[in-house]
């Protein structure tokens, strides 16, 4: 059986909120290392990969592998019933028909119990390869969100160019063009404001801003975001969570337009 208690229901709410517009029906794969999810969007150009390690829960118990097939719209409806400060416990039997969600108030004696009917989702496991990226950029998540939101007002696509000059986000649209360049930057007092650029080769790729803006819904989960790029390889956008957990998005580059 699965029993996973999360001190902050809000973390799970934010994760589901960040992915629910990209993917609809997903398997939450539970085993003794934690709860993982991998799903592609309908157009097969973006991929979500979430890992909530067992250390993120206290306690965490999962005796055998359990796949919880959940519709994220349904899950969102139930998670709305949790207060941000509630403690969340996920429960399921070994061959479950439902997943149970229990919300406990830390301050009062309220206990709320909900269940969601599970779906049988036939989802092949995607082998995401270990990749040596040509360029890795760590930057404030809010900054990346702002750049994407600003540029989508002008264009559907953004080019991300990484060179020894820094990283340049540029777009061209009907009304004109826009570009934002960031250079490596260290803020001793506020390390969450740092921009770190590691590059082994210059990289230039173009991406659909619609997807990037969507990924940025995860900005509330982490102060920093990491962008990993290599020519002709999907971009990795990573939000690190506590206890080595993460939320990752992959996006295929646009080619030849």
């Amino acid at each position: 059986m699965l029993e996973a208690r999360l001190e902050q229901a809000n973390l799970f709410k934010k994760v589901v909120d960040a992915i629910k517009d990209l993917v609809q029906d997903c398997n939450f794969d539970c085993n003794d290392s934690g709860i993982a999810l991998q799903a592609m969007d309908n157009s097969h150009v973006a991929l979500v990969s979430m890992m909530l390690r067992s250390e993120s829960f206290a306690p965490f118990r999962c005796d055998r592998n359990i796949a919880l097939g959940i519709n994220l719209t349904s899950l969102t409806k139930v998670l709305k019933c949790a207060q941000s400060d509630d403690i969340l416990t996920l429960k399921a039997e070994d061959a479950p028909d439902v997943v149970e969600l229990v919300f406990e108030s830390a301050e009062s004696d309220r206990i709320s119990e909900y269940s969601i009917k599970l779906m049988d989702i036939d989802q092949e496991h995607l082998g995401i390869p270990e990749t040596d990226y040509g360029a890795t950029i760590s930057m404030p998540a809010a900054e990346f969100q702002r750049i994407c939101r600003d540029l989508i007002a002008l264009s559907e696509s953004v080019s991300i160019e990484c060179s020894k000059e820094g990283v340049k986000f540029a777009c061209q649209g009907d009304i004109g063009s826009g570009a934002v360049t960031l250079r490596q930057h260290t803020n001793v007092d506020k390390p969450e404001m740092n921009v770190e650029i590691n590059m082994s080769e210059p990289v230039s790729l173009t991406f659909s801003l619609k997807y990037l803006v969507n990924f940025c819904k995860a900005s509330g989960l982490s102060n920093q975001v990491r962008l990993c790029l290599s020519n002709e390889v999907p971009l990795l956008v990573e939000y690190s969570l506590a206890n080595n957990s993460h939320l990752r998005f992959y996006l295929a580059p646009k080619i030849g337009d």
Binding site: M40, S43, H44, V45, L126, G127, A252, P253, I255
Partner: peptide, 14 residues
């Protein structure tokens, strides 16, 4: 879009 999908397939299949 089909190009993008192909890139993804190639990436995932290694």
């Amino acid at each position: 879009k089909s190009f993008q999908t192909e890139i993804f397939k190639f990436f995932l299949d290694g």
